[in-house]
Design a protein around this nucleic acid. Structure first.
Lengths: 341, 341
DNA sequence: ATCAGTTAGTGTATCGGTTTCCAAGAAAAC
DNA sequence: GTTTTCTTGGAAACCGATACACTAACTGAT
């Protein structure tokens, strides 16, 4: 048997009071108890090593102090950082965390939302697949406490925490163009549902226009999940031999790009410069050290957890809003352009 | 309000049966129901979009179908992989996952275990800090369903999944010595509580003795958390200028080691060869490409979840056992010794 | 002495399921 | 035709907490 259970009734009996009294003391509601009674009860709790059953508590009180987080990808280290921010914040504020992974699969996403609801989590943080707009709308209409992270959804009443992806892409590509690159390609996983995809592409285009280029100068390399990326990239580079820089919107893609370039015996950054999304601890040790866009993942996690908990703790419901965090360009060798300091 | 609740009573009323009958059908206990009744009830469930309340269910049935996982570090990508294995397996088998992070802090660890117990999780997977032996013993004595991952604890009755760390270190150092390195240092975070620390050090020593060296040849570089690692490594290297290889037991340390070596303008692998723990997607793109020990993290997660669930699903309790997975040496440039193929 | 007001504490319904025990009718056995 | 068994289904207790309605005791004012 698993640790035979001590219930609130046992404590009450031992301390010679009612369950109500014990419950009040447990919940630090001291309205109807003397210091003396409290002492007695706390003693009994300690002696019996009593731990309240969170299931029973949640059932009656309609609050579980659990929040759910649904990510779409566990592999990407960016999410570890976000998760860390969420976890730390939850712990500080007395919440536990239930985690699941939609794997970009909208059916999974829907299934897990139901799961979270059955488990009566107090709210959810979700990196949406963006493929279930009706689901998001329904949840928001129902006033289900939810914070959308990293990506945007098409609903004005959502609470969200994102990084400015237009800006992230813009500062990356702008840096390349300012330092003389003319044929800058963008590499991205084809995923037109996802807002980050659209925004980073938008930032890429914006940088071109801001630097006197035209639409004709865009070079867009769309990769498809599951294929041999490196082969595709090599073919693409051979077809466009004038490319002198690549802005990569995704860590995994970046590594494939670097692999392809090395296979083709091209020099980074002399022949092809690279700026890549997502700073990691490896970035500065790559060959060559990688210029990256850093996203404040830990902060994103913190803010998301904080906003969510505000949502059901504050009496006056906060207005729907999306917090926008700032990306940052970390300049290293791979972009071939280090500003003088 | 959050989605107004449909209860089993509502379904019962709609289908003109008792709660008992609905409950039986929900739990696929068809002993007392005709196909006709089932049909009726399932219709009602669908129409009302009924979803059982997992809290109520768990309270009475003493089963939550939730398992807890406690890691000691979210940053290290090795754990993302493990987590992915656990998550996938849990989903397949119908379990949900509650996650927390002890951050190597034994008090946190104890706190979170209590938290998990209060929440009535069915069992836990834990990467122990190794600093709470009494806690582990107590849980095991109480028959608390628990699978220890990655590290070993001093208790014969534990269930565990680990990678062979003696072997991992052995094959790394053996490779260096076989290919002619004579002054091989090991770099590790000083953490004598943790079994992996001991085992990797043991493997290091074993490789020396197997290659005709003696204890006098050990060069042990112990780092302390929180200090400036790179500075310390540089001082160490200057003090031991004869070091011609480093076996690094930890990804983060490896990066510091590489940084230190580059700062000192030494060549990898010509002057100092490196073999490092934990293969990552970056390893082969580092400068130079890194020879690593790959640990099967995803498998570790799978096996752990599988074992844990076996523990409370199979009638005959499995015997305590620790599954040992095999590490693998991935040879690249940094060790300066690529076997001919 | 009476009444109102306050304080400390209790009894019990309740949350939403599961489970045990029992009943009624049909089928089978004698 | 009566008893036994099997099948289908329901009533009510229960899991372990919280919350509402209530009482008993005490204070103090009239």
């Amino acid at each position: 048997m698993i640790a035979l259970k001590v219930t609130i009734g046992d404590v009450a009996k031992k301390a010679n009071v009612s369950k109500t009294t014990v419950s009040r003391i447990l919940n630090e509601n001291y309205a109807h108890t003397t210091a003396e009674t409290r002492e007695k009860v706390l003693m009994a709790i300690k002696e019996l090593e009593y731990r309240p059953n969170a299931l029973a508590k949640g059932l009656k009180s309609m609050r579980t102090n659990v929040i759910g987080i649904m990510l779409s990808n566990l592999k990407n280290p960016f999410w570890s950082t976000v998760l860390e921010g969420v976890e730390d914040t939850c712990r500080e504020l007395g919440y536990n965390l239930m985690i699941c992974n939609s794997n970009e699969n909208p059916e999974m996403e829907e299934e897990f939302i139901k799961e979270f609801q059955m488990r009566q989590v107090d709210g959810v943080i979700i990196n949406p697949t963006c493929k279930n707009p009706d689901l998001y709308d329904k949840l928001i209409d129902q006033n289900y406490p939810m914070v959308i992270v990293n990506r945007r959804i098409q609903n004005e009443n959502a609470y969200g925490v994102v990084v400015d992806n237009v800006k992230g892409a813009y500062i990356a590509v702008n840096h390349l163009l300012k330092y003389g690159r003319k044929r800058v390609a963008v590499s991205l996983f084809k995923n037109p549902f996802v807002s980050t995809w659209k925004e980073r592409l938008e930032g890429y285009k914006k940088a071109f226009l801001a630097n006197g280029f035209t639409e004709a100068d865009y070079i867009i390399m769309e990769l498809e999940e599951g294929k041999d990326q490196k082969e595709y990239i090599k073919r693409f580079l051979r077809k466009h031999p004038d490319i002198d820089a690549i802005f990569s919107t995704n860590t995994m893609v970046t590594l494939e790009v670097i692999g392809a370039i090395k296979d083709m015996n091209l020099k980074i950054p002399e022949q092809i410069a690279i700026v890549s999304y997502d700073e990691t601890i490896w970035s500065k040790y790559l060959d060559p050290p990688l210029t990256t866009i850093r996203q404040p993942g830990y902060q994103m996690g913190q803010r998301a957890a904080q906003s969510l908990i505000d949502l059901f703790q504050s009496k006056s419901k906060p207005l729907p809003a999306t917090v926008v965090l700032e990306p940052e360009l970390i300049v290293r060798i791979s972009c071939g352009a280090i500003p003088k300091t």
